[in-house]
């Protein structure tokens, strides 16, 4: 698979390390009343869809940026690649 890095252009996926579902960007609020339930869910349960999946890849053998890749888990087609930093910003989260 080729990941089209927003800054570096097309790179082979073997330069990257895969973490998992991009919902991992949304770490729950540890002070919420149901923080325990939220963290169990955050840490362990996943949608695991067959189809479009937003996921985190880390460019370890490159510029060491975190990317949010939207990929089809049935065809492996990648439809969008964003810097995780930009995604977090637009979703109103601080770095």
């Amino acid at each position: 698979m080729i990941i089209n890095h927003p800054l570096l252009g097309p790179r082979d996926s073997s330069e990257f390390v895969y973490l998992g579902d991009a919902s991992l960007l949304n770490r729950p609020d540890w002070q919420a009343d149901d923080a325990l339930e939220q963290f169990i869910d955050y840490g362990h349960t996943r949608d695991n869809p067959a189809g479009l999946h937003r996921e985190l890849w880390y460019h370890e053998q490159g510029d060491r940026s975190w990317l949010v890749v939207t990929r089809n888990t049935v065809t492996h087609e990648i439809t969008s690649v964003e810097l995780a930093r930009d995604v977090a910003r637009t979703e109103g989260r601080f770095e």
Binding site: S13, D21, H53, R71, V74
Partner: peptide
């Protein structure tokens, strides 16, 4: 291979 997939085929790396 190390990433979520439902395709019953792997990649070259």
């Amino acid at each position: 291979d190390g990433y979520n997939t439902y395709a019953s085929r792997g990649n070259l790396p």
